[in-house]
Design a protein around this nucleic acid. Structure first.
Length: 425
RNA sequence: GCAGGGGUGGUCGAGUGGUUAAUGGCACCGGGCUGUAAACCCGGCGGGUUCACGCCCUACGUAGGUUCGAAUACUACCCCCUGCA
């Protein structure tokens, strides 16, 4: 196979197994295993899903098929050279399943006090040691190649949710130019062999990429990972749609991103300060317009309710820091809503966090014990709450997939929202 | 017994005549967290009453007195710590 042909061959297999309204259930075949969708991807910014060991991520009660890493943070520390010398992010952290890396575009938003944007890229004042660092589409692609992640994100400008039409337009256009530059540099790097996560090409034939219409498949085939082959072994790269809450700009951004051409498409710039109603409105307007033959990824979202609501609007992939961050901060997500483990009312409560949860934490520990650990500042509290929250998010997605496949998603959605809105007692 | 030091709100600890219901820390109570600058941040924290501004009561070991006014200066007593006997 010629180097030139490499990026023309698919990096992902994508199959829709079932649809229920806009909701779709399927699977995404990456070079490092199958990801059943809709999927929740735990966030491991610095090469660690905070507080959760990889053994636990792989255990049956979590069974995460893909996690995130962050280009900006890993670039600052330990640095691309260390990652390359260690054979890429998978080897470095000891995780053989799939990894998606965010490009650093979110840090353009979250570190807005420490950066300056120009056409060329973004100058950051490192929060680690104060030195100036310059991140551009090209650098982001280079770092992500050194990381060897399985899904690379284009470098975008993530804008605050309340951005005006004018500001959002200018930003979207910058993001579109950066998308093209990201794609160009990405392709060069693949041809140059810079991708440390490269796997052998699988030669059994081309990967079928369907048109988004469900295909009949048995669950056994699904579990086995499907019969398709023909992945190129290269990284996949996703483009990101911006445009804040302005639907016309969102549509334009989508068109321009698709024009560049990516292996998948993401909605960025949501859950960044806009009203929730507007977030749903944007997802509802944009997701169905995204290419049906590619996975759709809603970046940074969200609460359990957000996940279910966004699946209903056509989204396939999610990530969010919420289960781990909120877990560290004492909040548990349950089938009956949020539970603040700090509350005095749980001091002597012998029940698990969630009666309906089968996770290792709920099988073994009481609210009273978890509260005691938290109040005492024991790090185990953060570990156990993070574990439970991830279990709840991942299990919710399992139920979502099952409901879509069995044609009961509408009922599932209604009952789920009633449950989580009913209040923990 | 003598000499010195000290007793402040749940706790430690500021304050040493006047917006002092009393700075801070901790503890406690509650809230927030959405592509992780986050094991973080914010609020409350004597009692009663009011929708609210507020008003009333009780409080700096105990009891007295001095003063327009005392946690703060004075007197007596109680208790604790240190040293000497």
């Amino acid at each position: 196979m010629s180097a030139q042909a490499l990026t023309a061959e698919p990096a992902l297999g994508w199959r829709v197994l079932a649809r229920d309204g806009e909701a779709r259930a399927g699977f995404l075949r990456t070079r490092r295993g199958v990801v059943e969708t809709p999927v929740f991807m735990p966030v491991g910014t610095l090469g660690s899903v905070k507080g959760v060991r990889f053994e636990e991520l792989e255990a049956p009660d979590l069974d995460a098929s893909i996690i995130l890493g962050n280009t900006y943070h890993l670039w600052l520390r330990p640095g691309a050279e260390v990652l390359r010398a260690c054979g890429g992010l998978h080897k470095f952290i000891g995780w053989e399943r799939a990894i998606l890396t965010d490009s650093g575009g979110f840090q353009v938003f979250s570190l807005s006090d420490l950066r300056r944007i120009s056409e060329e890229g973004v100058e950051f004042r490192s929060q680690v040691d104060g030195r100036l660092c310059f991140l551009s589409p090209e650098v982001s692609m280079e770092v992500q190649a050194a990381l060897g992640s399985d899904i690379v994100m284009a470098f975008d400008e993530c804008l605050a949710g309340q951005a005006t039409h004018d500001a959002a337009r200018a930003s979207l256009e910058l993001t579109a130019r950066w998308a093209r530059r990201s794609r160009t540099r990405f392709d060069e790097l693949q041809r140059e062999g810079a991708d440390t996560g490269r796997t052998e090409r699988t030669d059994a034939g081309p990967v079928a990429r369907n048109d988004g219409e469900p295909v009949a498949r048995s669950d056994e085939e699904l579990v086995a990972g499907g019969d398709e082959d023909g992945l190129s072994g290269r990284q996949a790269v996703f483009g990101i749609v911006q445009g804040a809450t302005h639907l016309d700009l969102r549509r334009e951004s989508l068109e321009r991103t698709v024009e560049v051409g990516f292996d998948g498409y993401a909605i960025g710039g949501l859950s960044v300060g806009e009203e929730k109603r507007l977030m749903y409105e944007v997802v509802e307007a944009v997701a169905p317009l995204m290419p049906a033959e590619s996975p759709r990824y809603l970046m940074g979202v969200g609460t359990p309710e957000d996940l279910v609501e966004s699946v209903a609007r056509g989204v396939d992939m999610f990530d969010c820091v919420m289960p781990t961050r909120n877990g560290r901060n004492g909040q548990a997500f349950t089938s009956r809503g949020k539970l603040n483990i700090k509350n005095a009312r749980w001091a002597a409560d012998a029940r698990p966090l969630d009666d309906a949860c089968a996770c290792a934490v709920c099988r073994r520990h009481s609210r009273a014990y978890l509260r005691h650990l938290f109040m005492s500042g024991e790090m185990l509290a953060a570990v156990l709450l993070s574990h439970h929250n991830l279990a709840f998010f991942l299990d919710t997605m399992r139920r979502v997939r099952q409901a879509i496949r069995s044609g009961e998603f509408t009922r599932f959605r209604r009952e789920f929202l009633v449950g989580t809105g009913s209040g923990v007692e």
